[in-house]
Write a protein that binds this DNA or RNA. Structure first.
Lengths: 221, 221
DNA sequence: ACAAAAGTGTTGAGAGTACACCCATGC
DNA sequence: GCATGGGTGTACTCTCAACACTTTTGT
């Protein structure tokens, strides 16, 4: 029996790309330029090439959409219902990326008319089962924020405590007490002071970097 | 462009089946009857059929190996390196199952010479990238035990507290204080008393059932 | 002096951990 | 009465949550 004796499903990777802009948690969606679901919004993604790993396929898609490399990227879940794509049997391996949106250059491609950031609380109707994928991603995102240090990947290299707190407040959609937040972060012993902000018309805040040798799993909130 | 214009990877599901026997955490492995890796131990699995969902494929594999249905089954991670299978491009969607091993009837099949339970601390050399898959599964298993109630799926319907504690001690490979363990479990308010054990030559222990309306995420240890 | 955000300490409640003795049964 | 596992309470520590005022800078 050879591999080609089996009629095989097609495999795509879909990348849920999160960022924070305008003090909101946003996700990148693309408007489809082709059928099926032409003109519907969808999570960016595409077919995995035969000779590239799934991780590489996800990285490639991410770079095609945003021009960014070397960002936080994590596999989430593989969606494999038989009828999830009207073109035929397609399974999709979903990934989540966290990007610092300042540097991003959105691109269009042949299959895509338009790409746009959407507030995760104000999503349009989505193609395929992408609503389900997005809901799953949001849960995982919050989990990751609570138990690991991924939050730092949304910040520039040097940041102030208030910027860090702001990101947590946006993702969890609630306010934290700044004394408790600061105390907790400092007690983790993961930050290094690297200067202060200048030219602000208030007390100059300290700037921090994440220490380089920090282990991944830390309960931050 | 049609789906069939893409040369597609093949898709398998592999099921890491855990149980507790002889006071040890064990995993079910099969000895391969065919090439590649003939006579090597491997995680049970197989090709997903074209018209069955990934979850259904995993359930089918599980039933083929163990004869069991309706057990705890969860998708873990999808392994997609280009060279992970010498036969060609194969990606595998891994699943984890937790079974109560009393009822199990191991079966052999055409592709499999032999199936056997292995202590997770004494594993043989494994085919493909199955070592990596198993290590990942073990991490996830421990995580799930810590933060959810999956542990109960390794127990019979009615159980005593000491049996529950025993399972946690085996999975985490450490002892817990029985006063604290009992206090914690009772404080969660997830158990219902359903009788006592008879015919034991010591103080008869109470039997419990998991309450039916219990929500999933509970930090148990 | 005023506006703006930065920075910082104390207290109380609840959860987790350490620890040892008596109880109910069968033989 | 003895062997076996079952069942239970207290004290300490640590973490989390609530809460408000002073500091530093630019204008």
């Amino acid at each position: 029996m050879k591999l080609t004796d089996y009629k095989q499903p097609s495999v795509t990777t879909d990348i849920v790309i999160f960022t924070i802009r305008e003090d909101e948690l946003k996700v990148l969606l693309v408007k489809r330029g082709i059928e099926p679901f032409k003109d519907k919004w969808a999570i960016p993604g595409g077919f995995a090439k035969f000779n590239e790993s799934l991780d590489d396929a996800a990285k490639r898609e991410l770079e095609e959409e945003t021009g960014m490399k070397d960002v936080y990227l994590e596999q989430l879940y593989t969606f494999g219902k038989v009828d999830r794509d009207p073109r035929g049997r397609v399974i999709t391996v979903s990934y989540m990326a966290l990007v610092n949106s300042d540097k991003i250059n959105l691109k269009a491609s042949t299959d895509v008319k338009e790409a746009k950031w959407f507030n995760v609380k104000k999503l349009p109707s989505l193609a395929f089962d992408h609503k389900e994928i997005l809901e799953y991603s949001l849960k995982r995102l919050k989990w990751k924020f609570e138990y690991t240090l991924v939050g730092f990947s949304l910040l520039p290299d040097k940041f102030r405590i208030s910027e860090l707190q702001n990101i947590y407040e946006i993702v969890f959609d609630k306010k934290f007490d700044k004394r408790n937040f600061s105390k907790k972060v400092h007690s983790l012993n993961i930050l290094k002071e690297v200067g202060i902000v200048k030219d602000v018309n208030f007390r100059p805040p300290k700037l921090y970097k994440l220490k380089s040798n920090v282990s991944e799993i830390v309960n931050i909130i």
